[in-house]
């Protein structure tokens, strides 16, 4: 059963909200060592799909396999501990805390000290705390946020908050990160920086599942693309195939995009 080439697989996923079918018999595989993008118009069911994978809003029907094992029915925190990290479309940070504290909470599920042991033995707990702080420092350096380490998150610009959220996710050492519109709301230079960081994270061996509207970002980063429309998969393939897919163009990209991409498509893929 276990296919080492596939990190995540969803089987016939269905999500119904009362009468509305938000996701309809969706199937796809996220390959190991690849960046997989999920695209589609607003309301297509992309965030709903991510929430089914993480368990935050479980599916009505179907199954989710992570590393070959079904994780349906497992609580959100257990899936996160298995190595599924995520960021949110609408940032969900601990806004009254500092950047470093946010990151430390992100790494906390890996710590081992129990409260009783901590009260009996402050020293080893303090060591663990120091270790966590060091790790947060490393991650902040990695994502270029070190200078903001003591800022209260609420005081940060939107782009910095998005980056903080990614850093917090990295602290949990996930095997797979689900990014829900990471570049939305960023200005061009922030977007460029974010792409570079995502690439850098990917190169450390983390698989990526990416929801993104900006087609430059998608074409730049992804190896595989799944396209959703009204909860149904309408296409999948590599960026080159998606760009020339008639259904994708009419449902999502539009004619203008085809003309624009016709010139530069060669360089990608």
């Amino acid at each position: 059963m276990d296919n080492p080439e596939v990190v995540l697989e969803v089987l016939d996923l269905v999500k119904r909200f009362d009468g509305l079918v938000a996701v309809d018999h969706l199937n796809f595989k996220v390959r190991r060592g690849k960046i997989h993008a999920l695209i589609g118009p607003n309301g297509a069911g992309k965030t709903t799909t991510v929430n089914m994978i993480t368990g935050e809003n479980p599916q009505t029907e179907g199954d989710v396999l992570f590393e070959g094992k079904s994780i349906s029915g497992r609580p959100v925190y257990a899936r996160a501990q298995m190595g599924i990290g995520r960021t949110f479309q609408n940032i969900k940070l601990f806004s009254a805390m500092t950047v470093t504290e946010n990151l430390m909470i992100g790494g906390q599920s890996k710590t081992t000290q129990s409260l009783l042991k901590y009260l009996a033995d402050f020293r080893s707990a303090r060591k663990e705390e120091r270790h966590l702080r060091e790790k947060a420092k490393e991650v902040l350096n990695f994502i270029g946020m070190y200078q903001y380490r003591d800022e209260i998150v609420n005081n940060l610009a939107y782009g910095r908050q998005k980056m903080t959220e990614l850093g917090r996710t990295l602290m949990g050492e996930p095997k797979l990160i689900l990014l829900d519109e990471p570049a939305a709301g960023l200005n061009p230079s922030e977007r460029k920086e974010f792409i570079e960081i995502i690439q850098k994270v990917f190169e450390t061996g983390v698989d990526m599942f990416l929801i993104e509207h900006n087609m430059d970002v998608v074409m730049n980063l992804s190896h595989d693309i799944t396209v959703l429309n009204f909860g149904c998969k309408i296409a999948e393939g590599n960026p080159k195939e998606i760009l020339v897919n008639e259904e994708v163009i009419s449902a999502y990209l539009g004619e203008g995009y085809r003309r624009k991409m016709a010139k530069g498509a060669e360089g990608n893929a």
Binding site: F88, F94, I105, S109
Partner: peptide
Amino acid sequence: DNQDAIESLGL
């Protein structure tokens, strides 16, 4: 501060 973010961090 933010209940919704806790579980996705493995807590």
